[in-house]
Amino acid sequence: MNIVVCIKQVPASAEVRMDPETGVLLRDSAEGRLNPYDAVAIEAALRLREEGDTLTALAMGPAAAEKVLRFAWAMGADRAALLCDRAFAGADVLSTARALSQAILALGGAELVVCGRQTTDGDTAQVGPALAAFLGRPCACWVQSFAREDGGITVEQALTGGVGKAHYPLPCVLAVDKTACVPRAPSLKRKLAAGKAALETLTLSSLPDCDPAHYGLLGSATSVKRIFPPERPQRGQSIGGTLAEQAAYLAAAVRETAKEGQPWL
């Protein structure tokens, strides 16, 4: 069967500051890296792959995003495809999920799609379930453990107040949590070969639905009204003095709230 793992290149540092005077975004670096949640998704997909399956890594992004696809290939993916077109720029969750779902169809469809729980830049955790909705399949989010059995995937999910267990029949989509498994390091051999691995490139015209109005900014339902630096309330009270005086101040605060049974109470 076909398995697709959706991955994303994110800024190396998720922390971006805004100059409060000018409103200009100050990025630490333009370096990209693999979304850390997606390394877990690749590992999960590799573990769910059985003899005869094909695992394809799929990323949407600029040409530079091929770096993360080569990494996925080095980890063990059979194919890697980059969905890259200016038409996809400025996509929100709806528009991103639509593009990815169409790319999966263009790749020949997939019985199993694996995503990371969320990205560190968008931080929505919504693309996985949204793309499942576009594909018309159930999606298991917050996956803590997974096993392929009985024509589907048995998962444990972190839910409110506990852990739910369920069997999701194929075809389905999984959004795996970081704790689901530990990503392997690519072997040296594949790492060296990854630079020459053939990447497939998909553009708008590769998709079954190639209406540009459905993608990118045009196909997005949300728009950004404005961005602004968060309000910083007045600073708190400064506790100065010597180290001993500061420690005494802290000790008084701790004594007020510490629970009974502390040896020093």
């Binding site: 540092s13 998720a14 922390e15 971006v16 500051r17 805004m18 975004l25 560190t120 830049d121 931080d123 339902a221 949300t222 728009s223 950004v224 009204k225 404005r226 961005i227 602004f228 630096p229 968060p230």
Partner: peptide
């Protein structure tokens, strides 16, 4: 919050 939390964004669904 957006961009890791040091920027706030106001989003509309027009």
């Amino acid at each position: 919050p957006a961009f890791g939390g040091n920027v706030m964004a106001e989003i509309l669904t027009r």
